[in-house]
Design a protein around this nucleic acid. Structure first.
Lengths: 184, 184
DNA sequence: TTGACATTACCGAACGATCGGTCTACGTTG
DNA sequence: CAACGTAGACCGATCGTTCGGTAATGTCAA
């Protein structure tokens, strides 16, 4: 076994986020992983759909356990919690050089199981961020508003970075995020 | 000739924005337009790429002559100029029910001619909006910052609306946009 | 330690379907 | 008739997927 499941799903994540679900052909995936198309069906009997599902599951797990975990860390100040989240996001998106998985996966037919997974991740993110903001002293409605707005801004920045092939604006928005969110 | 070129490109716009460039197969396009695949090649000898180009050209023309024109209307107050733009955007995106053309077109391989067109539209938009903000009294750097931020927010809201299948946040962001942009 | 037997991991070849694209002929309209 | 818009039939390529088979990798009784 040359590649572990974890390694393969990591590669799949990269392929799907750059080509989108439809654009990620098995040929591209096979070349990226170094496995033959048939071999991929050994790892993922459900085919392309199962690969995408594995990618989304892993992304959601990463989001929950890495990026959002600091938000619940009571040893950190509210500002440092947000800074920690921003740092993880910066790493995941490679400072804006990699585009958004949610975006790439959800383009195409709606109502698919993929869409449910992406929506779940987005809702989780919003909820956790809002919760961290209430802990910072904001009222529930205001906290949720700010959280939603911040995530919207991040999504937009990723689109902008991809279209313009320029990651700078994304980095800036991420850097300003903690201050912006806590500004009274 | 049952359908005019304008009508066809309008239909193509809708197909491309909902399926993305890769996901919009000629079969889907043929069904949507009511024309046989071969007939489409009579209208667009360059095939799918030319169809996409026509869509982007039309979108850019619409952006310039409809959505951005009010920004230069000296008979309007700065606030009303922004309100007019927001109104046009709301119509184009059908209050968030339709997803973003730039986003759907630019996912996939970068460096294509499509990417150049999308980037051009985005740059035009940013420039015009920033110009309107300088006319409203902001310094050039501040105006550009605000313009970029507003467009980023809109893009993000469109992604959020698509993923969550809920256009409400998009409508809200668009409604708040004029006040937000002019807030000193 | 060895031989026999599963199990696992992998891949070449081919499947039917669909992809984007072309050719040629037919109907309409001037 | 000539020009134009249309489409049925078809092309090679590629799509996602399946199948048969082959190396490795245990597993375990003899």
């Amino acid at each position: 076994m040359a590649l572990s499941e974890e390694q393969i799903v990591a590669i799949l994540t990269d392929v799907f986020r750059t080509h989108g679900y439809q654009g990620a052909s098995l040929q591209i995936i096979a070349k990226a992983t170094g496995l033959a198309r048939a071999s991929l069906y050994h790892r993922f009997p459900g085919g392309k759909a199962e690969m995408a599902e594995a990618v989304m599951k892993r992304a959601q797990a990463w989001l929950e356990m890495e990026a959002l975990a600091p938000l619940r860390d009571e040893a950190l100040s509210p500002r440092d919690r947000l800074r920690a989240m921003a740092k993880h996001l910066d790493a995941f998106y490679e400072s804006g050089r990699k585009s958004c998985l949610l975006d790439a996966m959800s383009i195409g037919e709606p109502g698919s199981s993929l869409c449910r997974l992406t929506r779940g991740a987005l809702d989780l993110w919003t909820r956790e961020l809002a919760s961290a903001l209430t802990a910072a002293g904001f009222g529930p409605a205001e906290a949720r508003d700010r959280a939603e707005r911040a995530i919207t801004l991040i999504q937009g920045a990723l689109v902008m970075a991809r279209v313009r092939e320029n990651p700078a604006p994304f980095r800036q928005i991420l850097a300003e995020l903690p201050e912006q969110l806590l500004r009274t």
